[in-house]
Design a protein around this nucleic acid. Sequence first.
RNA 1: GGGCAGGUGGUGGAACGGGAUACACGCAUGGCUUAGGACCAUGUGCCGCAAGGCGUGAGGGUUCAACUCCCUCCCUGCCCACCA
Length: 863
Amino acid sequence: MEKYDPKKIEKKWQKKWQESGLYKDYSREKKLYALDMFPYPSGTGLHVGHPKGYIATDVFARFKMLEGHSVLHPMGWDAFGLPAENYAIEHKIHPESAVRENIQTFKAQLEKFGFTYDWDREINTTDPEYYKWTQWIFLKMFEKGLAYESDEPINWCPSCKTGLALEDLENGLCERCGSQVVQKKMRQWVLKMTDYADRLLEDLDKEGLDWENSIVDQQKNWIGRSEGALIKFQIVPKVEPSEFRRSNLRKERLEVFTTRLDTIFGCTYCVLGPEHKLIEKLKDRIENYTEVEKYIIQAQNKTFLERTDLQKEKTGIELKGIKVINPFNDEKVPLYVADYILGHYGTGAVMAVPAHDERDWKFAKKYKLFIREVIKSLNGKSFIQEEAFTEDGKLINSGKYSGISSKKAREEMAKWLEEKGIGQKKMNYKMRDWVFSRQRYWGEPIPLIFCPECKKRAENFSKVRPFPSSSEALGIPQGQTLKNFSKGELLNPGWIAVQENELPVKLPKVESYKPTGTGESPLANISEWVNTTCPKCGGPARRETNTMPQWAGSSWYYLAYVMRGISNFQFPISKYKEEFKKWLPVNLYVGGAEHATRHLLYARFWHKFLYDIGVVSTKEPFQRLVHVGLINGEDGRKMSKRWKNVINPNDVIEKFGADSIRLYEMFMGPFTQNIAWSTKGVIGMKRFLDKVWKLKSKIKNQKSKIQTKNKKLEILIHQTIKKVADDIQSFRFNTAISALMILVNKMEKESEIPNTSYQILATILSPFAPHLAEELWEKLGHGESIFEEIWPEYDPRLARDEEITLIIQINGKVRDQMKVPAGVKEDEAKKLALSREKVIKYIKDNTIKKTVFVKDRLVNFVI
RNA sequence: GGGCAGGUGGUGGAACGGGAUACACGCAUGGCUUAGGACCAUGUGCCGCAAGGCGUGAGGGUUCAACUCCCUCCCUGCCCACCA
């Protein structure tokens, strides 16, 4: 007999499958959209870790095809952004050709696995026809007032020479290159993601998503909603009574945010972050301003790392001459500046309650400030001089609120604040708006044009009708423009949207695509591209030269695959709505956990926006999300060039075949877990496939269905059909394969196997080892592909054993076992058990106090 | 410091509250062979000649019965981190 030679059969089937369009039957009633997080074609090629997720979706896709679904299973390239650009700079080639080369490498590698991709739907985020739509979505957001220009300080990476979103930092270092990030004020485009914070948070629970807890929690954590209150502390005016009226200082207030309003009677001082604007305003009144200024400069010079490193030691300085008034007890308390207060969270200022907050407690101890206890723990113990008590409890020393619970106090105090008009309940979020511009070449150009004339007009218009800055407060009907200006154009005077029919705004060719370092994108140097005319008034205007971040193109790509089914990205959007309805939401989304807080939040944000403007009809894009565990090097360390432990899938496929590596990566352990690679393990899979191959010689060609002579084999087959199906459905591939192995081991021991049994084996193995299964199928004389088959049905009665082994325990310890017919009754089982020699020996003359019987499982005698 | 996931043989790992270690790797012994990362058979948690005893990070608890549920603690990985 011929040997199993994966090299020979795999190429053959890969070619046939692609040519026959086997995967492109999209007409079936049942539909499934299986999606992988698409790769950055990075230049180093794939290592064996990358395809793990792709194999899983492929197994799932093939399984669903066998169950009669039309399956959409596409693949594409996320090719914009820093990795591609840095690679290009390093190798001194244009990013475009680098990307082209790398895609070729990646694609060649992927094709060897025999995936069910519909390559007709391949996408590439750097294709102008693709980013036309990335730009279009941005323009829609701009139009609705969700994009705004901002000069706020941003995180600047001096090495990558670009601004970074908070999400792009790792311990204060640039995630890409590890450089120290500095704060720099810069003009940026920012997307108002915080407008969607509540929906992004709540829909995680409300929309019935089938996501892993860990990822849901990470997102919730990142959004970081906390319920609290805003309180205005009046600043004590330092003026003579006669001047009081004239002074505008009397109106000066300090606004703080707290989640522990119930502790406010324990507020013995307040603290500002070094960035707080009030310091500058009160400059003249601060008696020790020189020292304060010194402290602030010091604090700002501290790098991100230093500020977090210095956790143990809290520093700060009092603003001498300034006091603020606690509205609840009219107490005048001192005001400090300290760098443990973050400028960007809440209002950048806190009321300090040292008795009930860890940080305030440490600070108060260090500077010997008064600590007043106002919350008593329910067990009454108090160690306020030893440590802060931060839990809820009962209020004391709190005027009329004394005696009530923390929870109730928060309610009532907030009500009081609102009545007095000096505060209110307020949600706060850790999540911030998305800094959306990058000062780099290799990204989508932001399709906006700056027109000085239109700026004047827009400003004049805004003067006539004062324009609120918050988009939700605008209340302008969707799509409507005022005096020809969209919401976005009025929010950002002078910035005019490129017309839809002018899209895409293509990236121009450029001499040097290296960052300029001045904070401007290299695009700024190309005057013939930058200088243009205003689409609104026709006057001279300039293009925006910033580009979009890498995350832009990946925030909607799952829609692009669907669009490719209809046309190659032509306008208008209405063309695609039906198709979106047909395929969305994505039924299965598989990818790395590292995207839990960035890509997945951005994509959900964009999807919700597209839902709001009527493009898609589901509130969430991804119905089921599974995260793939990493494959580490054989040494247990992360696979990387640095450790010389990288394994190229090509080499593995060359030696053992694609089916073996597919099988191995699914068998190595629980899918979501990180596990070290083992080439030995692949060998084991090759052995298994060899066995399956050789089993063919045992086929006894008989026509009848699973024949009854070999009842045990028949039962095992039915059990395996069920087990493999259940396990694939719940991503327990390792145990599915183990079940297949048990079946094969059993078949091996038989002298002959019915033809039908062998065909069932081939079918249920086919999602994992498609090439081998297809080859065997052909050899068995079938003209059609095995993937046109239907997943075999199992007989639920047969899937259960009819003879089972009943365990006999004495005092919970296993002492004996016996074979009995399934479904045996308690009395019968007891009688049988008690007649057994071993049982008699153990029981001797003890009395049986109790007997526990579990049907088809065990009988336990307690003596 | 917070959140999440984990801790089971020499290794990767199985196990609806019911036989701990399925399946695979490795190893050992024997066989086979024109010698290969081949194949076949048997064995393989620990102690013990055996009967038997002990075993799922540690300690407690619930239960007839705990890897599984509850409490306390230790350790590892990932994510977040002065978040008011």
